[in-house]
Every structure is written in structure tokens, then in C-alpha cells.
Design a protein around this nucleic acid. Sequence first.
DNA 1: ATAGGGTTAG
Length: 565
Amino acid sequence: MILKAVSKLKWTKPSSQARQFSLTITPPVASCNTITRNSSSLLDDFTRFCYQRDLPRAMKAMHAMQCHGVRADSVTYAELIKCCLARHAVEEAKLVHNHVLSVLRACDSLIILRQLHCGIIKVGFESDVFVRSALIDIYAKLGELRNAECVFNEMPTRDLVVWNSIIGGFAQNSDVDEALNLYKRMKRAGFAADQSTLTSVLRACTGLALLELGTQVHVHVLKYDHDLILNNALLDMYCKCGSLEDAMSVFSRMIQKDVISWSTMISGLAQNGYSQEALKLFESMKVSRIKPNYITIVGVLFACSHAGFVEDGWNHFKSMKKFYGIDPGREHYSCMIDLLGRAGKLHEAVKLIHEMPYEPDAVTWRALLGACKVHRNTDLAICAAKKILNLDPQDPGTYILLSNIYANSQKWDEVAEVRKTMRARGITKEPGCSWIEVNKQIHAFNVADSSHPQIDKINKHLKHLIQKLVGVGYAPDTNYVLQDLEGEQKEDSIQYHSEKLAIVFGLMSLTQGKTIRIRKNLRICGDCHTFAKLTAKMENQTIVIRDPIRYHHFQDGNCSCGDYW
DNA sequence: ATAGGGTTAG
């Protein structure tokens, strides 16, 4: 019942966009000129034969194209299948069958995929378990989960690979609790999970920050001790669930490590506030034989940025080309802008934006905006926010941030103006939601939520805790009430922010001393941050809150984010 | 023949 509340939340990037299709020409067969001339006339032949529904000649032409270095793609096969259909040539179409599979795997356009799918149904391939799992996989990769699900549901018999395809599809499209539901269904249907299943399940745990479930999966992972991909997924799960001890222990026990293992561990340490350790690990990586890649360096710069190591960051950034042969990319520039901005060097950050060989995008300006927010540079912040809203007018986060900046500098007219624009553009703030795992059950809380069965007890406990905290100097920061744009505008509403409810529920239900781990869908507000720091100290309790982009480890009155987030 | 892993920003 409680898991359902989580299902509507979306976390990660949108699915990949469909791209335009064309025949792929592979060069190294003959000189370029011949290829171009040959391939275009062969393509003409092929198209003509298809048009004439002359299947044998069309297939011959296709074969000739392949011999001349023109690779057949899904357009080619879509044509062939149409050709078969026109001739009612089911038997011949089956000859295309094996090709169809390889084409399905390479298909990156939804329109072509739909054509292929229609063709497949009409010639009767759809009952083929291989074709089905390829269809599921490709629909999922194109972000068409409902289509993938339809293909899956219509299957009379399923094997493990089909289950893995659909579970993997949901796990990779951030519909992770559906992936977990399917995993349960799979077990009920009598299938045992293999490496592939477990990897997807771990990924789902990672997405929802379900440490308890992830730890249960770890037990099954032990069977596949030598599986590198699975161990990397396990590593990432522990990092993203904020359990660095477990992550380090998995990492040190891994028999084989590749660049992904190292990158995951480096970023994981940095994301959880252990920048020094992350940089130390990068030094060990240099000693090992694994060569850092683009992503590794992003993690390293991220670590420097969060620890305020401006010099180190610059050094890594400037030497990455020389030492590792990697050109600084957009992401590296974004990290550097973040690094400079965090350190208060806002003008250097702006200078870097102008110097970089890329057009600044929304991400670039967001990095600058974050810095402006912390260093209270209202003018620059407004400038950056406006750039973001030009590039991405539908981004609720920027409106909220802009409104927060105005609120912090007491510019209430501007706050009202931002709200008006949001309303006019139909943009709404996602309601705040936090959740916590207790005894293998997920308990989710919305702001001022009263649906939890123990809500009266929780509220009573919360009031009592706030009184105790006020006694040691806690002053609820009502500024944050004014920042709420939707539905949380009551004066006392910060008292009922979802993370406070979750923390209190954690204190009530977990055994004393067990780390309270909370996941939430929005960034934590300043008041809840202070509340968590003081609660951690007063109750002598470690609290880990993972918001959509940061980790906060609260311990003894401090937070690992260093109050910068 | 079909399935699984890592990054910045928000």
C-alpha cells in the first residue's frame, strides 16, 4: 500500500529520443568514390525491387549492398517485410527472420520499429520468443514501456531472458518499483534470478535507495562472486544508498575491477561527502593498471569541487589531456564552474563559461546559479536563472530557486512575479515526499500527510522533539515557509515537511542506534537541514538523507555536505 | 540468436 505512493515519482533522465534513420555506409571496402557510386545505385536497385514486390531480387540486391560495404538497417528490413507481406510470402519472410533480430537490436527509431512490429505480427513472427524479447528490449530502450509491457503480457510462454528484458527495461527507465513488482511476479512464476536479473533489481534498489532490499539481494549476489557487472551494480547500490562501509568492503573484496568499478567508488565517496577519500582512491587507481576515462575525471573534479580544493581541481582539469588523453568535455567544464562558484570565485566561473569551447547550456547556468544562491549574489543569480528559463522554460526547480533567492533578499514583489509566471505557464511544484524502509516495508510521507496509520503518534513525537530542540537553540526558520510555492503555505507547514515526519518515524520505529536512512524527491530545505543536524546530536543518532542530487550524512550536529548544497 | 554496471547539473 505504501509502495504505491512512490510509483509516481520520476528520478532520472528522460528516455533517449528517437533519431533519424538512414543507411549506414561502412567505408573500408574500397575507395570512397566507388563506395558512394556503387552504394547509391545498389540502393536504387533495392528500392525498385521492393517497390515491385520482387522479393528474391530485392534480397539479392540487399546482399550485393552488404558485399559493397552498405550495411542493411531497419529501413531496409522494413521494406523487405512490407515486400513479403504484399506477396503473402510468409515462408520467404521467415528467411528474413534472423536479419530481423539483428535489425531490431540496432533499431533506434520508434517509427521504423512500429513498422517492423506490424510486419512481424502479419507474417506470424510474434510468437517467436527471441523476436519478442528483442521487441521488449527495444521498446524499453526507446522509452516505450507501455508497448514493451503489451508485448510481454501477450506472451503465452516466457523464459528467463524475457523476464530479464522486461525487468531491465523498467529498471533502466526509472520506473523502478514496477521493475520490483515484476521481479516478485517472476519469482512467483517459479523462475530463479540470475546475474542479469539481480543487476536490474540492484539498479531498482539504487533508484529508490532501498538499502534493506539491496542488502537482501547481496546475499544472492554471493553466488556470482566473479561477475564484474553484478559487483559494479552492488557497489553503486551501496554508494547510492549512503552505506559507504559496505561499498568499500565490496570494493576491496572484488577480485576483478575495471574502470567502472573505480569510477563508481570515486564518485560514490565524493557524492557522500568523502572527497579526501575519493581523491586518495584516485591516486591508488593511477597506481593500478586501470586507465581513468571521461567519467572518472568527472568524479575527481566533483570531489575537488565539494571539498573546496580549487588548486587540485585546476591541476586535474588542465592535465587531463596530457596525462589521460581526454579532452575536457561539457561535463568537466560544468564541474569546474561548480568548483569555482562554490569557492566564491563567481567571476572566474563566469570567465570560464565565456572561455569554454561549448555553448553554455541549462546545466552550465545551473551550476553558476547554485553558487550565486550560496554566495548571495542576487544580480548574477537572476541573470543565470533567466538564461536557464530561456533554455528550459518548463523547469520547475529554477522557478523555485529564483523565488527562493528573491525571498532571501526580501524582494516579495519579485517572488509574487515568479509565482505568477509559473501559474501562467502551468508549471507546478512537485509535492514533497520522503520515504524510509522499516522492516522491509517502505513508509512514504507527503508534506502535512495524515494518511500514515501512526500519524497521530508521529505528530505528537514530532512536537515533543521540536520543543526539546528549541531548548538547545533551534529556531524554526519561517523564511522557508515563504519559499513554498504550492500547497505548503501555511505558517506552520515546515513543521510537517515530509522529511521531518520520516525522521521522527525512523526514531520511533528503528532499533536505537541504527542509522536512519531517508530518501526524498525534492531538495532538503534549510530548516529541515538544521532540524536534522540538531536531532542527530540530541538523539545521538546518525541520519542519512538522500535528496535527488545530494547526500547528507548528519552526525553529532554536523552534515557531510558542509552546509553547501 | 534474446537480458545486466559508472558521471556533472536540477
